[in-house]
């Protein structure tokens, strides 16, 4: 089974800080990590490979340091990592990103399954998965929380979560899935995996290598543009209740009565 997992390197939410004066992100001290949802996409791919054989290729588009994310994926057991990196890819919106990823996957040859996390925690768009499916001519299912493969080795039964429950779906590979964290528990890296990942060769594919049209990648290939950013403002209206636990609770109950809650 040929499985491609798309991962993104994102700023670690724990280390991100914002400059409230300027309304901007402070880059200093921000650590880059694999997007949390993508770990579960990778785990799904590894489990498939462990059961049905084949190969898991991990793909990431990003700056040169995104190589670290690919090495981490290799330490978890992925077979191959490919970095899509080129100055010309910068500034891509989801339209340009899906074009670039699709060019890379086409170059890899026929695939049975493409897996993505539900969304990246920096952009939060959740659009790359479905868009990429269209580019590759594949059916897709988003928000997958359970997955099984039937005896024929290519029909899948999937649970797709929605607001008031879930749908059970059937589809045949090849297909693209975006997965939820609840699909599986991501494995730990192994020492063997870490040692292998350290030495692994990670090819870097640029625009030329992909045969990508310059007008369809990066900023040039993006339909949307950011015109401004700001920090959300929260209404300051706090009243800290004072005293012992008993006194605070009594004050709260009093205010509940005033507000007609009690």
């Amino acid at each position: 089974m040929n499985i491609v997992v798309c991962i993104k390197q994102v700023p670690d939410a724990k280390t991100v800080r914002f400059d409230t004066e300027k309304g901007t992100l402070v880059r200093e001290g921000v650590e880059a990590v694999i997007n949390p949802f993508d770990f579960h996409a990778l785990e799904a791919g590894l489990q498939m490979r462990d059961t049905y054989g084949g190969e898991v290729t991990v793909l990431s588009m990003g700056p040169p340091q995104a190589e670290n994310a690919l090495r981490e994926a290799l330490s978890l057991g992925a077979d191959k990592g490919i970095l899509l990196s080129d100055r010309a890819f910068a500034g891509a919106d989801t339209l340009a990103t899906t074009y670039t990823l699709a060019k890379a996957i086409e170059k890899l040859g026929p695939v049975d399954l493409v897996l993505c996390g539900k969304q990246a925690i920096d952009g939060d768009t959740a659009q790359v998965g479905p868009g990429l499916a269209v580019r590759l001519g594949l059916p897709h299912v988003t928000c997958v929380s359970a997955l099984s493969v039937l005896d024929d080795g290519k029909t899948m039964h999937l649970r797709r979560v929605n607001e008031d429950g879930y749908d059970m779906l059937e589809l045949e590979m090849p297909a693209l899935l975006t997965v939820l964290a609840s699909l599986n528990t991501s494995r730990l890296p192994s020492l063997k995996g870490k040692m292998r990942a350290r030495k692994a060769d990670i090819p870097v594919w640029d625009a030329q290598k992909l045969g990508a049209e310059p007008g369809r990648i990066g900023l040039a290939g993006s339909a949307t543009q950011v015109v401004s950013t700001s920090l959300p403002t929260f209404e300051a209206r706090q009243e800290m209740l004072e005293g012992s636990a008993e006194e605070q609770v009594e004050a709260l109950v009093f205010r509940f009565k005033e507000a007609g809650i009690l």
């Binding site: 939060d124 659009q127 479905p130 868009g131 988003t142 928000c143 797709r160 929605n162 607001e163 339909a223």
Partner: peptide
């Protein structure tokens, strides 16, 4: 931006080769 909207609207935008802003 429901489970359904966020699933198939990106398909439409990609086929139409236009921009889509999420959520």
């Amino acid at each position: 931006a429901t489970a359904m909207g966020r699933s198939y609207i990106p398909r439409v935008a990609t086929i139409l080769k236009t921009g889509l802003t999420a959520d």
